[in-house]
Amino acid sequence: MTSPSDPELRARALEALLIGKGLITEAAIDDRITLFNQRVGPMNGSRVVARAWADAAFKAELLLDATAAIAPYQFVGGQVDKLVVVENTPEVHNVVVCTLCSCYPLAVMGLPPKWYKDPAYRSRVVREPREVLAEFGLMLNPDREVRVWDSSAEVRYMVLPMMPQRLAAADEATRIAAIHRDALIGVVEV
């Protein structure tokens, strides 16, 4: 059996020390791991978007004060101090990043994908978003404004994508399944 890598060894030692000092318990950590593994995060965001598509009053509240609008859902998996939802329109496309450290609205969107944390995405999407989006397969009309939201403080951002025509007659469950996490970040459309 090979020795664990340095970071892994340090991580295990850290956990042991913290348990020994009474600051955490193994049970609490295991419970939280289970929660993260359930990965309900992105589904939460998709549910919110699907409801906004169907309920104009909810959509208005979501755009005005997203934190309050999602509070009744009591999403777990990380505290979102303040959430701002930015709406895609025919005139504007939004995309979200954290150039400094990859922070992400865990409660509504679960864990971020690996590419979101990558230095290439983080540095390029603020500089050449159209090029980056094209690499994701999203070709935007040059007349459409691109707004990049760099989460440099405690505010977290989620994109409200436009509903495509093909979902106009679909039921809520179908719509939720179609709203991919990447559309909530803004690198694709639904």
Binding site: V126, E145, V146, R147
Partner: peptide
């Protein structure tokens, strides 16, 4: 932010 060669119609928001 990026000069005249920047992609057109880009706005970057920072908190």
């Amino acid at each position: 932010l990026w000069g005249e060669d920047a992609e057109p119609g880009i706005r970057v928001h920072l908190d």
